[in-house]
Write a protein that binds this DNA or RNA. Structure first.
Lengths: 240, 240
DNA sequence: CCTGTTTTCGCCTCAGAGTCGATAACCTGC
DNA sequence: GCAGGTTATCGACTCTGAGGCGAAAACAGG
């Protein structure tokens, strides 16, 4: 550090995670119950302060490690920073919220004060945490329609039926499995593993297993109003 | 304030604005030239510290007021918060960046140290400001395709040709005016004012004038992979 | 009335969504 | 091991909305 002091006012800063996962066919968020004031007894998002040498994301990972195994987090994305002066009764605190996604086939060992809540049946949350939840769910649902973000919400291998359940839970409404299969396939998002599901009870044809082809975010051109001239050939590129 | 002290470390926090506008057929960003260390002589985004009783957005508006008339800002949206420990040589500073849009028919009186730069020909920026510019431009381009955000980038009244120029500049590639007209109309985004443009030089049929129907953000369902059952009738709703 | 410019319209193609039925693969019970 | 029930998968067809393209229409000016 050098070149004189920083000329800006400082404020306590916290990071918060909206950890979303499909638990038993409903999209749920991970909350922990506060035992101390302020808002003792209310449910809150996991998170906390930012240590001096950590970036926001790193600080958040450490806080999350006390709740879930961080390796289970398949997606982590910053959503928004809130700055209401009175959002914390103890004094002004800025808060940056992240969206974190966990696949449904991992079962984190939760501490006693922590549990999953369906996003449609949230308890009263501490501070302004409900704003973060709303924003994160909205972000997730938007991205489900034009990215392959589903990879972070689905098991590593799944049947189309299971994928339908997961996507339906995340979106909040039913989707038809036949169209889901066709769309995901046509977009090249999923591919069959070759294996088949174990028949299970009740008989019937065992379903084929699929996996997401990529496990990093890819954007499926959301019908671009007006896309580049024609992809290849025709010059004009210009920038970057 | 009450209930004990805030238990989180504090950091200087600044707000930055990526002010974008179409200037002479190219998407441009508003920069000012730093006169003092660090990074004296380099160009930087407008912004600064956050006063104690102001929210981030309010603080940003005040900083912007020294550069442009705030009333000209047609859209203001938070994009991201950066936290690299060494992003400011004077010490750790967190920074929250905003995207601000200004219509092309307003001509802000700029201070001497301030001017517009085409986003494709940026000078070397101070700090990590280029990250903010990239993120803001990306956000703008994404939203152009599935929202009516264009209202903040277009004049209050315009011909289809002019709209094409503005949109082309923002996207960085040419778009066909005929499709633009149809798409914008079909989505109900624009409507004719009834007036026609002055013929101008060269003759030809005078173009009809249009305006954006709404000047607040509306989202045009980006082809939802799987949308709700059928909107009305057919029961099945369920949650929410 | 001819020319140049801009708008407007029609036609074509393509992708997504929904429906239906045929077929495949498995179970259970006899 | 075979018949019948159950579930999964796939293809064919249709419908709708969007983008690409080009021709026709509308209009000002000479």
């Amino acid at each position: 550090m050098s070149a004189g002091p920083v000329p800006f006012p400082a404020y306590p800063h916290e990071v918060l995670a909206v950890v979303l996962s499909v638990r038993g066919d409903t999209l749920s968020v991970l909350l922990w119950r506060r035992s101390q004031a302020p808002h003792a007894g209310r449910w809150a998002l996991p998170g906390g302060g930012v240590e001096p040498r950590l970036r926001l994301r790193e600080a958040l990972s450490r806080h999350l490690a006390t709740k879930v195994d961080v390796r289970e987090i398949a997606w982590l994305e910053q959503v928004a920073t809130h700055s209401r002066v009175d959002r914390d009764p103890r004094g002004r605190v800025l808060a940056t919220g992240y969206l974190a996604l966990i696949p449904p086939d991992t079962e984190p060992a939760l501490p006693n004060d922590t549990s999953w809540f369906p996003v449609t049946q949230l308890p009263r949350l501490a501070f302004d945490h409900h704003y973060f939840v709303e924003a994160a769910v909205e972000r997730l649902r938007a991205k489900l329609s034009y990215t392959n973000i589903g990879f972070a919400l689905a098991p590593s291998e799944f049947t189309i039926q299971r994928l339908r359940e997961v996507v339906s839970a995340a979106l909040g409404y039913d989707v038809a499995p036949t169209n889901l299969h066709r769309v995901m396939t046509r977009r090249g998002m999923i591919e069959p593993t070759g294996a088949r599901s174990v028949p299970g009870q009740g008989g019937g044809r065992p379903a084929a297993l699929y996996r997401f082809r990529e496990r990093t975010l890819e954007i499926t051109d959301p019908f671009a109003v007006l896309r580049p001239p024609k992809a290849d050939s025709s010059a004009r590129a210009g920038t970057s």
